[in-house]
Design a binder for these strands. Structure first.
Lengths: 136, 136
DNA sequence: CTAGAAGTTCGCCTATGGGCGAACTCAAGT
DNA sequence: ACTTGAGTTCGCCCATAGGCGAACTTCTAG
């Protein structure tokens, strides 16, 4: 049986409201609208101007949240997600997006490790670094 | 010979202006004032209300800059630096401050590595995590 | 005396990631 | 008819890390 939500949309249909997407993704509706402004998610509008999202929107948000944890901004996540068409049945695209995140994360780790190694030497306290001072 | 700067202070004396500190630390004078508001540095005032800093101020700024690179905020750097008295001749205090940074950096790396490992599994796309769902 | 350099405070602007309340619409249920 | 719930836009709020300009003072040099 097909029931309808309070906006008259069939709930069995693959279109979700902000609130539904928000709950499923574990964020607030506020945040979802924010993500939309940054292009992380995008959707349609109902006749009453309410946002309608396809189910993959939830995955997009989850990816962006995961990406944040490796220091990726919403804008950057939006760029990565731009390569994945809405309602893609192609799991490979999500896998490769995940791989991009892993690569970026590993790069961050390498960078951080280099910084920590430098910190350990206390070199940062030195008056100036040799490369700033051209030795004739 | 003791020369004087444009504010009438002897440059051979151990008190520096914002500009001098800024140049030595490789930041703008603006930034130095900002750091002062956050307690990263502190100094005196001349009769004309101009800031006067001791030379160790430069090291404090450099430490804060290094700390930023491992994700430490100015406020946190201020806390670490609060343990080092002005004009400390005790190198050990700087060494231990450096060690704190290294420990924090290593913790960040471990955290990041864990996150990347999780990303690699694509688990973040799953509807809910087991720990959110109490299995009776 | 006057110009210039460097200092001062104040306050607005930026980006990033949202929270929150106001005021409003829209559709369903009683 | 009215309430209720969920949606909408708008705009101000926070922290973090400063940039930048305005308007003003202070001191030195010529």
């Amino acid at each position: 049986m097909t029931s309808t939500d309070h906006r008259g949309f069939e709930t069995s249909q693959a279109l979700l409201t902000v609130g539904q997407v928000a709950r499923a993704a574990g964020v607030t509706a506020n945040a979802v609208r924010f993500y939309e402004r940054y292009g992380v998610v995008s959707g349609y509008r109902s006749s009453g101007n309410a946002r309608r999202f396809t189910v993959d929107t939830i995955c997009r948000i989850k990816l962006a949240l995961a990406a944040q944890r490796v220091g990726i901004t919403l804008k950057e996540s939006a760029d990565i997600l731009a390569g994945i068409p809405p309602l893609s049945r192609d799991l490979d695209q999500w896998v490769s997006a995940g791989e991009q995140l892993v690569l970026i994360g590993q790069a961050r780790i390498a960078q951080l490790q280099a910084t920590v190694n430098e910190l350990a030497t206390l070199d940062f306290l030195q008056p100036d670094t040799p490369e700033d001072r051209p030795r004739h």
